[in-house]
């Protein structure tokens, strides 16, 4: 009836009428659904039997049980699990921390060891090069003194030779003069002036020496 009334009052515009018709269809479908649902419920589904006081009672008990469960879980049971998980997390974190600390200590020890080795190596190297340097310096100075000594000795020897030679030369002049005088006096039987012979010998020696 309501549908017809609506239809009649909106009869002026054809377009709207078509729209109304659609609404009517939808509405009648909806009414069908609504009226069908309780019939269906009456036929079977105990879940849709809202007249049953047990259906309502069930919801009241549900509310009580659900709230109780929520309170027990949130205040009592879940915090327990949370504390266990937290304990595990902290203990694992602690273990990890300890392990990390041990590792860093080991790393430091290894680094120290390496550093010590390196230092020892370096100092040994330094000592070796120092020893080499000193021994080289010692050898150098020794050779210098030795050289000096040798030079001196050589110089002395040369001087000695020179002196001996000079002496020998002086002796030779005298011997030559005397020999010349003797030879001349024997050959000629006349004595000659010594100074003439001296001059001749000196000239001969000088010619030879050059």
């Amino acid at each position: 009836m309501g549908i017809r009334l609506g239809h009649a009052s909106a009869g002026r515009w054809a377009g709207r009428q078509i729209l109304r018709r659609r609404w009517q269809l939808a509405a009648s479908a909806a009414v069908l659904l609504i009226t069908a649902a309780p019939a269906w419920a009456a036929e079977g589904m105990p879940q849709l039997d809202f007249a049953n006081k047990l259906t309502t009672a069930q919801v009241v008990w549900l509310a009580i049980i659900f709230v109780a469960l929520y309170l027990l879980l949130s205040r009592w049971a879940l915090p327990q699990v949370a504390s266990v998980l937290e304990m595990r997390a902290t203990s694992i974190a602690g273990d990890l921390d300890a392990a990390r600390r041990a590792k860093s200590e080991a790393d430091a020890a290894v680094a120290e060891q390496a550093k010590a080795t390196r230092e020892a190596h370096a100092s040994a190297q330094a000592e070796i090069s120092a020893a080499v340097a000193t021994s080289k310096a010692a050898a150098d100075s020794e050779s210098v003194t030795l050289n000096a000594k040798l030079d001196q000795q050589i110089a002395e020897a040369e001087e000695r030779i020179a002196r001996a030679r000079a002496a020998a030369m002086g002796a030779l002049e005298q011997v030559a003069t005397e020999t010349a005088l003797e030879v001349v006096s024997r050959l000629t039987g006349t004595a000659i002036d010594g100074s003439t012979v001296n001059r001749a010998v000196a000239a001969a020696l000088a010619a030879r020496a050059s």
Binding site: L54, Q58, W61, I65, L69, L73, A77
Partner: peptide, 22 residues
């Protein structure tokens, strides 16, 4: 008190959940 078998199952379920966690 109109306590139905449905509510009994709810109590059992709640008990099992709490027991599991406890």
């Amino acid at each position: 008190v109109n306590f139905t078998q449905s509510n009994l199952m709810m109590v059992i379920a709640a008990g099992l959940i709490l027991a599991l966690l406890y």
